[in-house]
């Protein structure tokens, strides 16, 4: 069972953390892009036009029906084949995560606004607020309060999904882990146990606080 030292040998831990940063950077970029695009998708879905609505619905459902890894393959291998542009793994990862994330954010935004009861609009207007004031002071704050916990939740899902990118050759934390294991094959034959346990723990230490925060905010929202 010994071999835990491998984690602290040389710059191994530093390399793992570097790999983790690659994962997090990809997640953060994708989350940011998803928020921007998702808000637009959500806003478009609130439009009364049935055709626009249907198109958004179809987009969300198509993204949802396939495993994220299948999408990653389609983008990574398929786009290269189709266009001849050589996408690197990181770009493919960001594209996949953003297409998926934006669809989820869009659905959340739509749900957050439709969840606001009609009488909130009515009582706001009856107090003499203008449309702009109504949205600034009454509607947006409520929608955002409803959205934030769900967005945080989605972020943990996206961070976890980023682990898939090792399968298309991106050198992130899992790949670095494998390199460390391979390099220490003879000196530390048990390295795999500790390296993967450490990576497991790293994901947990990132995602767990986010989950707690999301739960706390959900409770505050009064559900």
């Amino acid at each position: 069972m010994q071999g835990i030292e491998v984690l602290f040998m040389g710059n191994n831990m530093l390399r793992l953390l570097d790999g983790l940063w690659v994962t997090l950077r990809l997640s953060l970029i994708s989350i940011g892009l998803s928020l921007v695009i998702g808000v637009v998708v959500g806003a478009v879905m609130l439009v009364k036009n049935p055709v626009v609505k249907a198109i958004c619905r179809v987009y969300i459902e198509i993204v949802r029906i396939m495993p994220q890894l299948v999408w990653l393959f389609i983008i990574f291998f398929g786009i290269t084949k189709l266009t001849g542009i050589n996408l690197n793994g990181e770009m493919a990862a960001v594209i996949m995560l953003t297409i998926w994330g934006a669809s989820e954010v869009g659905d959340l935004v739509r749900a957050a606004f439709t969840a606001i009861p009609k009488h909130q609009f009515e009582s706001g207007l009856s107090l003499g607020l203008t449309r702009v004031q109504l949205y600034t002071y009454v509607i947006f704050p409520q929608a955002i309060r409803g959205l934030v916990p769900d967005i945080i939740n989605l972020s943990t899902r996206m961070i976890k999904t980023t682990a898939l990118v090792s399968l298309i050759g991106v050198t992130e934390v899992l790949k670095v882990g494998k390199q460390i294991i391979d390099a220490n094959r003879f000196d530390y034959p048990n390295a795999a146990l500790w390296v993967y346990a450490a990576i497991f723990l790293m994901y947990f230490l990132i995602c767990f606080p986010l989950s707690l925060l999301s739960r706390k905010l959900t409770k505050k929202r009064g559900e």
Binding site: G3, G177, N190, A192, L193, V195, F200
Partner: peptide, 23 residues
């Protein structure tokens, strides 16, 4: 529940498949 929900399946699998044999 917290361990299971806050880690990716692929990491869980790597630990099971590559890590556990070492134990």
């Amino acid at each position: 529940i917290e361990l299971s929900r806050n880690t990716p399946l692929i990491v869980q699998l790597f630990f099971l498949y590559f890590g556990l044999p070492k134990a």
